[in-house]
């Protein structure tokens, strides 16, 4: 998933919030009272478009989605807008659906396994690239490529690489004496395949953010540790890893929020199949709403809303952590 982060510890204090500079000389309340009202008018004049935009294109679609999940929509009533209110029945339908348990399990496995590998590989590469050697910066830049490619490009390339008969992956396995694996067409392997592709896409983000976090660890610490006889392994576990914890927390939390909602890769590679073996909440929601001839907008929206709740819970944790780090 494409995402970005804000590193709390890399920004000068004055940049953190507009209010930080404002509140510094005097208590916030008097500052607020002293703000000239003409400036307030100007400020909200500048903010009006984006506020209106948020209301129209974030709040309203969200509201429509909640409304969808609480009514019994058919194609006809969807167009005419007179669907009967059914309360939480769509949610009960979803909980009772045989797809619910597998979708939940796949969402958790997909998210956790992706995050663990993206973070571990990203961190190893970040440490490697902090060393000075020829071409270091260029190669690190090239690592960004998977992150920049459109997801449909990455997903279709992986699809062909993992093709059972003509894919390069099975050809390589064959060369070392392992029989062909039906990566995308076997229920045993489809989830592994989409996780593999997702790890590849997520490594660059982890690399860049963790690398920039490593830059803020003072080099003197390593020199002192080296003088005291600590080897590279000890230096990593005693210095790098603990000091990187704040940045790691931010990276993992944001990664979590964004991995939960990954849709494109799974849908393009396997459509959640075969037989729901790689379906997650995101693809299931799409499947219900748009994937069948007869759309089930109500249950689709209900599944989506469960996803929103999960994303927002972890999102709030992320913002809390980030704010706490910003203050300390």
């Amino acid at each position: 998933m494409k995402h970005t982060t804000q590193l709390p510890d890399r920004r000068p204090l004055r940049d953190r919030t507009g209010a930080a500079t404002a509140a510094a000389p005097s208590p916030a309340r008097t500052t607020a009272r002293r703000r000239p009202s003409s400036q307030q008018w100007a400020a909200w004049g500048f903010l009006a478009p984006v506020t209106l935009y948020l209301a129209l294109f974030y709040a309203y679609p969200l509201y429509r989605n909640i409304d969808l999940s609480l009514r019994n929509y058919t194609v006809r009533s969807f167009v005419q807008g007179d669907a009967p209110f059914t309360g939480l029945r769509n949610y009960l339908t979803v909980f009772d659906d045989p797809t619910f348990a597998p979708a939940l399990l796949h969402t958790v496995v997909f998210t956790v396994v992706s995050l663990v590998f993206q973070y571990a590989i990203g961190l190893a590469l970040a440490v490697f690239f902090t060393q000075h050697f020829r071409l270091s910066a260029t190669l690190r830049a090239l690592f960004l490529v998977p992150w920049l490619l459109p997801l449909i490009v990455s997903a279709s390339t992986w699809s062909w690489m993992l093709n059972s008969d003509s894919g390069i992956v099975n050809a390589a396995l064959h060369a070392v004496g392992i029989g062909p694996v039906n990566w995308l067409t076997s229920p045993d392997w489809s989830l592994t395949s989409v996780i593999l592709a997702n790890i590849w896409i997520g490594v660059p983000f982890n690399l860049v953010v963790l690398h920039s976090g490593l830059q803020s660890i003072p080099a003197g610490l390593y020199e002192a540790a080296a003088l005291d006889g600590a080897n590279a392994w000890q230096r990593f576990w005693r210095i790098t890893f603990p000091l990187l914890r704040p940045v790691s927390a931010i990276t993992l939390l944001l990664g979590l929020v964004y991995t939960l909602k990954v849709f494109d890769i799974i849908w393009i590679m396997t459509k959640g199949g075969p037989a729901d073996s790689s379906t997650t909440f995101a693809t299931w929601s799409y499947q219900l709403g748009f994937g069948n001839l007869l759309p089930a907008f109500g249950p689709g929206a209900a599944v989506g809303n469960l996803l929103v709740v999960a994303a927002l819970v972890f999102g709030l944790v992320y913002m809390r952590v980030q704010r706490k780090q910003g203050l300390s």
């Binding site: 507009g18 400020a43 974030y58 969807f78 929601s285 689709g300 989506g304 809303n305 996803l307 913002m319």
Partner: peptide
């Protein structure tokens, strides 16, 4: 302004499938 910044951060976390379904309606 602080509240608005908060809303903007939260808005980034809404899954695309939700936005898509809302926009579709």
């Amino acid at each position: 302004g602080g509240l608005l910044s908060f809303v903007l951060l939260a808005a980034q976390m809404i899954p695309g499938i939700i936005m898509a379904m809302g926009f579709y309606a």
